[in-house]
Design a binder for these strands. Structure first.
Lengths: 152, 152
DNA sequence: AGGCGTCGGTCCAGATCGTCCAGCATTTGA
DNA sequence: TCAAATGCTGGACGATCTGGACCGACGCCT
């Protein structure tokens, strides 16, 4: 799926996606046109979804994050989903099996904002909210290695 | 906090962090040294946490994702946290208020792997797992605007 | 008001980088 | 066995980045 060089390139880019082709080339021992070609193919294959920038929500004033479990009332599923998508403070939302239909992450600047935003869903769904106290693991990609499972 | 130019730069970089300084400069109407300087400051201030690459777990064979709520048994909190951090398939973990101590995201290649990984925690914590069926919102940053709250 | 420091900007030139192309080695498949 | 395909390299050339000199706006102090 990925060869060793691809993995090394990705690992470097995960740390700094603005690394120049020349640097990448040096670090993996290829020429820069080869690296350019490999990156192009990784994008084509969809392995690289995007080169992007990770922004610190705190630095923007979002001092609070919450995980919200959302159970739409009967018949309200689509309205609720649309609402969630439209509220930009939802930074992530997964539709899951089980009682809770959605699990979402909410960025807010204050408890007041949290309350205001949840109020906009309150008449269409039951929610339960857990405030995030710490982030032992911040978003990271899955292991790149081809092997089956994390070292046992 | 951020001025309009900063916001525009960030928006461009969120879409493609490899955009050249020259392009950035053109798009916001500055010279490229000024843009370089602004980016440097955004990094210094911690607004930009990293330039990185978004990888598609599916393209790597991780066809399954799950949200796992984890409630360590009495006295096991730290051991459990350490264990979670060490298992690379955990792609995210938040420590939250409420009964569930941790909420984590797990990337796996099969239901079998899911079971194997959860087994490694099973004797130290209660877990409840929800399989992700769809992702209405994939990871996105909070709104960059300085205004209080999403359009009401 | 005038002087001065700072901040953020421009312009320019030398250094660095990316891209295109021709050519070569290795692998693949008919 | 040979032809085509693949993946790489090196070099040339154009594009981009970087650092320095300089400039204007602004706020502050005297």
């Amino acid at each position: 799926m990925l060869d060793d060089l691809d993995r090394r390139l990705l690992e470097i880019l995960i740390k700094d996606s603005r690394t120049s082709l020349k640097d990448l080339a040096q670090q993996v021992g290829l020429s820069s046109p080869s690296v350019a070609e490999r990156l192009r193919r990784l994008e084509d294959r969809g392995v690289i979804r995007a080169f992007t920038v990770e922004i610190d929500p705190q630095a923007l004033g979002y001092t609070l994050q919450a995980i919200v479990r959302i159970r739409p009332l009967p018949g309200k599923l689509h309205i609720v989903q649309k609402l969630i998508e439209e509220i930009a403070e939802f930074g992530e939302c997964d539709k899951v099996t089980g009682d809770d239909c959605f699990v979402a992450r909410l960025f807010v600047r204050s408890i007041g904002d949290l309350d205001k935003l949840l109020d906009r869903i309150a008449d269409k769904a039951e929610t339960s909210t857990a405030i995030i106290k710490a982030q032992p693991i911040r978003r990271r990609p899955p292991p790149l290695a081809a092997t089956a499972i994390s070292n046992p």
